[in-house]
């Protein structure tokens, strides 16, 4: 058990370090902060709304992450496969699941850092008004889980192909599906011909449905379970794909 923890820590440390030795990390952080700011203040009408909340900030995250998270996660396994280092990594004394978990955690930690760097907006809203900071915290938790869900899906598609572009497109499509299943225009379309129960069932698969609850300031066990099972499933699928790739 100790050696498992040490393996996960070592691989995650290496992985996280590799973001910062290339320009990827800095480019991503700058773009992420610019875009979150742009969407929250300009398109989301942060000031014109006249309310002390970060709703206009969080509401864009499912769409913003749709492009940015696959961009961060697409290299996770594709790059290992393309360069042949996967052979090196998996012939070291590690369990494949340790490597899968470590790589996921490293990228997730990086996304958490990017999200944490949006703290000035929290300060701003606190200076200008009197927001519910509990709700903001719940919003951040939801946003982090959302990023984790997209990232786990990207890890899975990244393991499928040695081509990063293929991994990127596949994960965008899958994540888009997870958004659209609960997106109001789509659910409205469904209600015209499907029973309400079916519409609810489809919407329950959507990240948006669960994400919205966090934005209302509610941390519900069901929503946590949803994200946990999505993460678990995607990472398990990653391990199956990697095993099949090796035995094929």
């Amino acid at each position: 058990m100790n050696s498992s923890i040490a393996n996960v820590r070592n691989i995650a440390k290496r992985e996280l370090g590799s973001y910062f030795t290339s320009p990827v990390a800095y480019v991503f952080l700058v773009i992420f902060l610019l875009l979150t700011g742009f969407f929250a203040f300009t398109i989301g009408n942060f000031f014109e709304r006249g309310e002390a909340s970060l709703a206009s900030f969080f509401v864009w995250h499912p769409w913003l992450y749709l492009v940015l998270v696959p961009a961060i996660g697409m290299r996770v396994w594709s790059e290992e496969r393309r360069s042949g280092t996967m052979e090196l990594l998996l012939t070291l004394p590690v369990n494949p699941w340790e490597a899968i978990l470590a790589k996921f955690l490293a990228s997730w930690a990086f996304l958490a850092l990017a999200l944490a760097l949006t703290f000035p907006i929290v300060i701003t809203v606190n200076l200008l008004g009197d927001p519910d900071n509990g709700q903001i915290l719940a919003g951040y938790v939801g946003s982090l889980l959302l990023a984790g869900a997209y990232l786990a899906i990207t890890c899975m598609t990244s393991a499928m192909s040695r081509n990063q572009v293929v991994a990127f497109i596949l994960s965008v499509v899958l994540c888009l599906f997870l958004i659209l299943a609960g997106f109001n225009p789509v659910t409205d379309l469904l209600t015209r011909w499907a029973s309400p129960a079916l519409v609810d069932a489809v919407a329950a698969f959507s990240v948006v449905t669960h994400y919205d609850n966090f934005q209302k300031g509610v941390i519900d066990a069901r929503d946590l379970l949803y994200f946990a099972s999505l993460l678990g499933f995607a990472l398990f699928a990653t391990s199956v794909i990697i095993r099949n790739h090796r035995s094929a």
Partner: peptide, 23 residues
């Protein structure tokens, strides 16, 4: 391994230290 694949974004020292830790 064939083609001697290494993590090319690391320094030689960093890479060897990483493998040493994994060992």
């Amino acid at each position: 391994p064939e083609n001697a694949a290494c993590y090319s974004d690391m320094s030689v020292h960093g890479f060897l230290s990483f493998v040493a830790e994994m060992r």
